[in-house]
């Protein structure tokens, strides 16, 4: 029995040239610019601890049985880059979220479809770019900030570089991915978009003790 629904319109095609602007749920600090049709901040801080809003990045949810997918994807609870530079995160058992460059949803989806072609069982891909907000918290004290609002043990021993987990951050269920940058700890925090402004404010508040600064959109994919 054919069980794949991959042929269906699985994603939001990237916007055609249009005046319509996409926005993050978080108020952007000036100066502003556009990135793949999204309004983003180009603030530059150079601070030791930075918080950036990466909401425009592409997010694709992949559901399939782990056995069918084989080793082509990361394990549950781990994150790794694929050849195309996507960050593939084992977000839940039999569920991955693939992060990629802003505006690349269609391309990302077709790449994944290609990779999973022929996989057994039900395989579905859903573009959740617009569903989630994503923050990047990076710097030496990033862990200190997160420890104030998240109960997971973030030490190197239990949560080293490449760890991913879902847990509550300041009361909101989030996917947290550690992907260190230039040898400094960095965390991607993915959450339901409607909590975006709330979570952003909480992170800024928790980070004040460590002199966190809000940075503009940075290209990480």
């Amino acid at each position: 029995m054919p069980t794949s629904t991959r042929k269906g319109p699985a994603s939001v095609p990237d916007p055609i040239a249009t005046a319509m602007l996409a926005r993050s749920p978080v108020r952007q600090s000036k100066p502003l610019r556009q990135e793949a049709g999204w309004e983003v901040s180009s603030a530059d801080t150079g601070a030791a601890l930075e918080l950036a809003d990466l909401t425009p990045i592409t997010k694709v949810l992949v559901r399939a049985s782990s056995s069918a997918v084989g080793s082509s994807f990361s394990d549950f609870g781990r994150a790794r880059r694929d050849e195309a530079g996507h960050l593939v995160v084992g977000a839940r058992p039999d569920e991955w979220i693939v992060f990629g460059k802003a505006g690349s949803a269609a391309a990302t989806i077709s790449q994944i479809e290609e990779r999973l072609a022929g996989a057994e069982g039900l395989v579905t891909l859903v573009d959740v770019t617009h569903r989630d907000v994503v923050f990047l918290l990076s710097g030496t004290d990033a862990r200190g900030v997160l420890e104030k609002i998240c109960a997971i043990d973030l030490s190197d021993r239990t949560s080293p570089d490449g760890t991913a987990f879902r847990s509550r951050v300041a009361g909101v269920s989030c996917l947290v991915v550690r992907e260190d940058r230039d040898g400094r700890p960095a965390y991607l925090i993915d959450a339901d978009r409607s909590y975006g402004q709330y979570l952003f404010d909480v992170l800024v508040d928790a980070g004040a003790e460590f002199s966190v600064e809000v940075a503009g959109y940075t290209e990480v994919f």
């Binding site: 069980t3 039900l122 617009h130 569903r131 978009r193 409607s194």
Partner: peptide, 12 residues
């Protein structure tokens, strides 16, 4: 049963 359910409340 083969069903995948995804919450999309905030996607739209």
């Amino acid at each position: 049963w083969q069903v995948h359910v995804t919450s999309m409340t905030s996607a739209f």
